[in-house]
Nucleic acid binder design. Structure first.
Lengths: 263, 263
DNA sequence: TCTGTTCTGGTCGCAATGACTTTAACAAAC
DNA sequence: GTTTGTTAAAGTCATTGCGACCAGAACAGA
C-alpha cells in the first residue's frame, strides 16, 4: 500500500469501493430441523434490477471498513450481529457490468431472536443457504465461499456460541453444529468433547418441562469476545484451549420458568 | 456490494485503493540455519520518507487485485512468486496520515533461487522476519499477521512446497517446516507423517555425495496448483488427503551429478 | 577397516476419537 | 401409583494418530 512507485495521491482511479455482508442465522425449515439461512435484499435499480443481492453499500471516507459494514447492516436489515469478520476482497474487473467495483465482504452471525427483527417486506427476505436463486453480480460465489468458511471454522473455533444466547443446553449447542455441518453428531461423544475442551461450564441450572431427564444449562467460559479473528484480535492456539476446571457439586435444582425449551 | 441503498455510481469518494504484498523466502542466517526473510523497499517520499515499507502500488482500473499485486511485485522486485494469496484488506481511517487509503494485502512465497534475483540496491533490502525495524504505516502489524498466517497454514496445508524446487529430500522439506515453525522436528516422525499423508512420492533417485546414507528424492503428488486458496481455488478436506500409494520396488540408484545437496 | 553421520524403518505408550452400552430422571399415559 | 417413553448423562472398548525413542542401513572420509 502507498508504495514508492505510486503517485502522491491515489484517488480518482475510477474504482468504486463498497462493503457487503453475508449474514447467517439458524432457522427451522418446514420439517422443524434448524438450517442455515441468510437475508437478501432485492435490487431496485440497474444493473441486475429486481435480482436478489447481499446487503451492502459504499464506504464513506470517514468510516472504517468494518464500520461501513455495521452501518449498512443496520440501515438495510436493522441487524447488529454478535459476530462479524472480514471474508475476502472481491475485485475482478468484470464483476460489475458498468462501473469497476471492489467489494470488501464481511460475514456475520446473528442469534435467532435477532434474526426475527429483520424488517421483512417486499425488498428483504430470508433464503435457505443451500437453495439460493441466481443472485446479482458474483454474489453466489461469495455466499458459497462464506458458507465454506463458516463450516470450516465451526470445526476448530467456538463460533457456535454466536448462534446462541448466554445460556444453553448441550442439545441446543449440538443442534447448532449439526445444522451447520449438516451431519448428525453422537450426543455422548459431543458432550465429552465439549467438557474436555473447557470452553463451556455448567451454570447450575436445569431446564424442566420436557418429558425426559432435565438437561443442565451451560455458559461459555472466558472473556473472549466473539467479534473478530482478524489481524487485531488474534489468539494463539494455546490461549484457545483453556484448562478444564474441576467438577462442581451436585446441582441446586433451580427451575426458572422462563427457561423452558421449545421441545 | 453495489447495494440498493448505494448511489448509482460509487466513484470519487476520495478513498485511495492500493495493493501490497508480504513476500516470504527462506534464507540462511549467520549460523547457517534457514529462517524466514522478506524484502522491503525504502520510501522515497512523504509520508514516512526513508522508512522501510512493503512493496505495493495503486490498482489500475483495468487490472484485477491479484493482477495488480503481481505487476507491482515485478516492477519493484522482479519477483514472480510460486504462491500468492490474498491476506486481508486494511482500511482504518487513520492508517495513512494524509489521504484515506484502503490496501488489499497479499502474501507470497518464493523459492531461494528466485529470491536471489531481487535487485538489491539502496532501496530494496532483505530483512529477517523476526527482526524488523519500525516500518511505514501499519506495515509491522501486517507483517505480523502474514507471519501468523504462514505458520498456521504450514500446519495443515502443503504450502511448504512453494519454498522448494520440484525434487527435494525429506531433510530439505523438514528444514522448511523447522524454519517456519521455529522448532525442531523428529526426522523419523516427520517421515511417517509425510508418507501417510500421501502428498509426496519418491522419484526413484537418490542424492549421493554426503558422508552418510544417501537420501531419496521426492516430488509432490497430484496436480494441485499452489496459486491460491481463495474463493476460486478451494479444495475440500477430503480432496487434500490423497490415498497413499503402494510402495515401489528397490531404487534404481541413479545419481545425477547436478542434484548434490549443499551439505 | 574403522568411524562419524544421516537416512530409514520400527516399537512403545499416551491421548483423542468413534461406536456403543448403561443408568438417570423426568412427563405423560395407564 | 405404576408403567412407559424419551432424552440426559456417564461409562466402556477398540482404533487411530502422534511424540519419544531405538536400531539397523548406507554412504564418505580417515
Amino acid at each position: 500500500m502507498i508504495a514508492n512507485s505510486a503517485p502522491a495521491t491515489g484517488s480518482s482511479t475510477g474504482i468504486g469501493l463498497a462493503v457487503s455482508t453475508v449474514i447467517f442465522a439458524l432457522r427451522r425449515d418446514e420439517l422443524g430441523a434448524p438450517t442455515v439461512w441468510l437475508p437478501l435484499v432485492r435490487r431496485t435499480r440497474e444493473p441486475y434490477l429486481d435480482r436478489w443481492a447481499l446487503p451492502g453499500g459504499m464506504v464513506r471516507a470517514d468510516e472504517s471498513l468494518e464500520g461501513a459494514a455495521r452501518r449498512n447492516l443496520g440501515e438495510t436489515t436493522r441487524l447488529e450481529p454478535t459476530y462479524l469478520e472480514q471474508l475476502y476482497a472481491f475485485g475482478d474487473v468484470d464483476r460489475s457490468p458498468d462501473q469497476r467495483m471492489v467489494s470488501i465482504v464481511y460475514w456475520a452471525l446473528v442469534r435467532p431472536d435477532e434474526a426475527e427483527r429483520v424488517s421483512l417486506g417486499q425488498n428483504v427476505r430470508w433464503f435457505a443457504a443451500d437453495e439460493l436463486p441466481d443472485l446479482a453480480f458474483d454474489h453466489n460465489l461469495i455466499v458459497d465461499y462464506a458458507l465454506w468458511r463458516l463450516r470450516t471454522k465451526m470445526e476448530y473455533s467456538r463460533i457456535a456460541h454466536a448462534f446462541l444466547g448466554p445460556r444453553f443446553t448441550l442439545a441446543e449447542l449440538r443442534e447448532v453444529y449439526e445444522a451447520v455441518l449438516r451431519k448428525p453428531l453422537d450426543p455422548a461423544n459431543f458432550r465429552r468433547q465439549m467438557e474436555t475442551s473447557g470452553v463451556i461450564e455448567p451454570t447450575g441450572e436445569v431446564v424442566t418441562g420436557g418429558r425426559h431427564r432435565p438437561p443442565r444449562l451451560y455458559r461459555y467460559t472466558g472473556d473472549v469476545d466473539l467479534v473478530d479473528a482478524g489481524p487485531l484480535n488474534r489468539r494463539t492456539a494455546a490461549e484457545t484451549h483453556i484448562t478444564p476446571e474441576p467438577r462442581t457439586e451436585p446441582e441446586p435444582r433451580t427451575t426458572p420458568e422462563h427457561l423452558r425449551t421449545s421441545a
